[in-house]
């Protein structure tokens, strides 16, 4: 796939090129490799400083794998990840650890990785100690300041995770991520489990912090209304690949790829006068397994607009201003020259 050419700033904070991650499927006593899961299959994107890139797609599309690859929590099969001018995939562990300060992640359940017997002080100061930024009283002071910044109280430091509601827990997760002064925060379904009233509070907090600290976000979520609200640009992922990319409002208002059109049609609305979604969605059936992706365009078995080239030819990416789309409907003229 060709590079996504646009970006908010001339020098992007993060630049990912042709990223691939295949997981082997093993069988039997000898762990023979019998196949592979194409979790991420050649994605390219950039995030500028202070920018938010939304990543949407259904379960199994590879969104979370992209997040883990960017943080080098997983090793890519191939491809490059440039962060602040450094190639992450070639770094030694010590150098990688230094760079990781600038890259943080928040998850759907912020305490899933924490010992329930740790106090909030321990939870929040752990990254400070791991990165040898500060210890003891200094670390506690930083933690107290950050808790207050995210809308909690310094007195919460001596409480335990179970004493907090979902929204408060996510605030603690954000405070913990901010301890190392990151430049990029990956939000992997970070607001998805929250009640709507609380979800709005956390989204507002993320926007405030972005304005104050110049943070860039890679924002992964399945709720398109939420992604549109927070993102400058959106990438739509289907079975390990990007099918469409562009400015958030334009992309959802005028989706070009039939899959994006289905997703946009699936956006829930509390307006009782709007026709129900099932009258608008065109995608048929369910996504196939990423261990056996369809030939040609991966969306073709579900696509209402599929025609002959879709079943056997890979669609090339066409660019229209700030937008790109990978669909034979848009590159019918170019197919012959590219394939």
């Amino acid at each position: 796939m060709s590079a996504i050419s646009n970006s908010a700033t001339p020098e992007p904070l993060l630049e990912v090129r042709d990223l691939v991650k295949h997981f082997p499927i093993t069988k039997g006593l000898l762990n023979r490799t019998v196949g592979k899961v194409h979790a991420v299959d050649g994605v390219t994107f950039r995030i500028g400083r202070g920018e938010t890139l939304g990543l949407v797609g259904e379960s199994g599309s590879g969104k979370s794998t992209v997040a883990r690859l960017v943080l080098r929590l997983l090793d890519p099969t191939s491809g490059q990840i440039h962060f602040a001018g450094t190639e992450l995939t070639r770094q030694r562990p010590a150098e990688l650890k230094r760079l990781r300060r600038k890259l943080q992640i928040i998850f759907q359940d912020p305490f899933s990785a924490c010992d329930p017997r740790m106090t909030i002080a321990q939870v929040v100061t752990e990254p400070l100690e791991a990165h040898r930024i500060s210890t003891g009283k200094a670390a506690r002071r930083t933690a107290a300041e950050l808790l207050e910044r995210v809308g909690l109280a310094a007195s919460d430091l001596d409480k335990y995770p179970h004493q907090f509601s979902g929204g408060q827990a996510q605030r603690i997760g954000i405070a913990r991520a901010l301890t190392t002064e990151p430049e990029l925060l990956v939000c992997d379904e970070a607001v998805s489990a929250l009640d709507v009233s609380v979800q709005a509070q956390v989204l507002n907090l993320l926007r405030e912090l972005q304005g104050e600290l110049g943070l860039a976000y890679l924002f992964i979520a399945h709720d398109l209304n939420v992604v549109r609200y927070i993102s400058d640009r959106i990438c739509v992922m289907y079975l390990g690949q990007f099918v469409e990319h562009g400015p958030a409002d334009e992309l959802l208002a005028e989706p070009q790829h039939p899959y994006t059109r289905s997703l946009a049609a699936a956006i829930a609305s509390a307006d009782p006068h709007r026709p129900p979604r099932w009258d608008r969605i065109m995608a048929r059936g369910e996504a196939p397994s990423p261990s056996a992706p369809p030939s040609g365009c991966r969306f073709h078995p579900r696509c209402p607009a599929a025609f002959e080239p879709c079943t056997n030819k890979f669609p090339v990416e066409s660019t229209m201003g700030e937008r790109t789309v990978s669909c034979h409907l848009h590159d019918a003229a170019e197919v012959l020259s590219h394939d």
């Binding site: 009233s197 609380v198 709005a200 989204l203 507002n204 549109r228 609200y229 208002a253 609305s269």
Partner: peptide
Amino acid sequence: IPTPETDKSQPLGA
């Protein structure tokens, strides 16, 4: 609840 019409320049009505 954010909707497709929500003004992105304003905080959500939390």
